[in-house]
Structures are given as structure tokens and as C-alpha cells.
Nucleic acid binder design. Structure first.
Lengths: 144, 144
DNA sequence: TCTATCAAGTTGTACTATACAACCAAAGCG
DNA sequence: CGCTTTGGTTGTATAGTACAACTTGATAGA
């Protein structure tokens, strides 16, 4: 059984290695939708629509960045803005049918990739790995 | 106990979330050295020097990208080039003392951040998480 | 041996993601 | 009504990246 320090080093090294490859790998997997766009759309689906400010807060992005990303997604016809009648400043973002379709398709292909990659893991290991990741991400969500 | 499909979804979602935040978080942690620079220097330390082409292959980067990154690191005095006498085309890259110092310092601060973040994990969980990450990254190293 | 090809790196160009700052417009509050 | 806050856009700048064209050195086949 390795020492605490060894495990910490491994975790650091492996997470870093993963982060280093993630963007390129995602771009390769579906040129249609960058990693960022994908997560934004996924969040919209998850939340049944939300404001640009919420996206920025959730993903630690500048509001200008989100503004441009959303503009691009709108240009592609994947999201639409609905001005909140209660507050004219607010534009609630929603997935369009086309956005939903693209997101579902990309999610499916990502899903397939993960399935292949994790094909030889047994159910218990998958469950534990998932719970560790949840626990890791939940701690200090503003860091790493 | 969750189903296989649930675990897969969680893993996908959490790894994606992590990847989304990693770059910005790393930049915040040490403005001196981006995530990419850090991994390049770490690889040089690990390998006791290597060629730019090796870095490109290992990190799935274009050689032009590596060329510029290395040029920047050289400008900062963190790496030096030693032309291979056997093959005049080849420049073997090595950490300078200053590069080693910066790398060690950044590694230490990363280490501290991880330690804090994982402070309340017990040793067994850390070891298992580390081994899962290793196993994950080892499978299909060219993807995600 | 000469030439054609290959390999290592650099440079030109372009694009994307990002941040920060300045700004505008709508709300809300004294 | 004016001041502050909030949601969002736009201007500007930078980093990281890819692709293509090029240079230089190595190498193998005629």
C-alpha cells in the first residue's frame, strides 16, 4: 500500500496529464462542438435554460467570454434567447431543437468513447471511481 | 449501488467538469508557468532532457507549438538547447538550474494545494483514487 | 557519389478561447 | 429623481494552438 505522499503525487500527475489532453481529445471527438460549447449546452439542458451570468459563474468564465460563446452558439442555431418579461435586462437562454439534437448526438458519441475505454472495468470499480471524482470535484470547486 | 450506465455518466461529467476548470485554475495557482509549460518542464526533468519532437509526440501537440513554447521557456531561462553532435538537426533540451528551481517551486505549491484539497481523505481512498486515475489514463492514452 | 527523400525545427498566418476594461441599459433604492 | 447594482456587449490584447511552407541536415537507393 503506497504512502499518502505517493498517492498525492500520482493523483496530481495523472489529473494534470488528463487535463493536458482533454481539450484536444474533445475537439477530435466532435469537431462540431468544442469542450466549452459542449459543457455550456449541457448545462442549459440540465437547467432547462438559464442566464449567461449563471453560466459564467458556474464555469468560472468571464461574462464577456460567455457572451461571445453564446453568440456563436446562437449563430449556429443551437440556442435561443428569450428576454425575461419580468426583467428586461435578462435573456434566458434555451436550447433549440437543433441544439438539443446536436448535444444528444455528441453526448452519445462521448458516451460510446467512455464505454469502450472503460469496457473492462467492473461495476464496482466504476462506481467507486465515479464517487471519487464527485468527491474530488465537490471539494473546493473553485480550484483545480 | 448505481448502475454501470450511471457511473459512466458521472465519470464523463465529472472528468469534463474537471478538464474545464483545470487550465484556469492552474494559471491562477502560478501565473509564472502555464499548465502546458509546467508539463513540458516536468517531462524534461523526468526524462533528463529530450527533443522537441518527443515533447510534441508525447503531448499530442504540433511541432510548431512546441517550438514556440520551448522558445518562450528558453527566453525565460528555464531550458537550454544542446545540439546533438551525432545529428546536427537535433537539439536536446535540458532544464537549467533556474528551470529546475521554478519547476520545483511550482510543483511544491501544486502539491500543497492538492494536500489541502484532499486533507480529509483517508489513505486507502487516496491510494484507490490514484490507482483508478492511473488505470484510466493508461487505457487509450491517445483519447480524452 | 549524387540525388531524392525524410526528419527536426522555425516561421508565417490564422483562429479560438480567454481576460480585463469600458461601456450601455434596465432595475431598484434612497 | 439621481446613485448604485446587475446583466450583457464590445474593444482590445494575449496565449495556445494548428497547418502549411520553408530550411537544414541525414540517409538510402540508383
Amino acid at each position: 500500500m503506497p504512502h499518502r505522499a505517493d498517492s498525492l503525487d500520482t493523483i496530481q500527475r495523472e489529473l494534470t496529464a488528463f487535463a493536458r489532453r482533454a481539450r484536444a481529445a474533445a475537439a477530435q471527438l466532435h469537431p462540431e462542438l468544442s469542450l466549452v460549447s459542449y459543457t455550456l449546452l449541457a448545462h442549459l439542458q440540465d437547467q432547462q435554460g438559464c442566464r449567461a451570468t449563471d453560466l459564467a459563474a458556474h464555469y468560472l468564465l468571464d461574462k464577456s467570454t460567455v457572451s461571445r460563446q453564446v453568440a456563436a452558439l446562437e449563430r449556429l442555431g443551437f440556442v435561443e434567447r428569450r428576454t425575461d418579461p419580468q426583467d428586461q435586462r435578462v435573456q434566458v437562454l434555451h436550447l433549440t431543437d437543433r441544439g438539443t439534437a446536436v448535444l444528444d448526438q455528441v453526448a452519445a458519441s462521448r458516451r460510446t468513447a467512455f464505454e469502450e475505454r472503460l469496457a473492462d472495468w467492473d461495476e464496482d470499480d466504476l462506481a467507486r471511481f465515479a464517487s471519487y471524482l464527485l468527491r474530488y470535484n465537490a471539494s473546493g470547486s473553485a480550484r483545480d
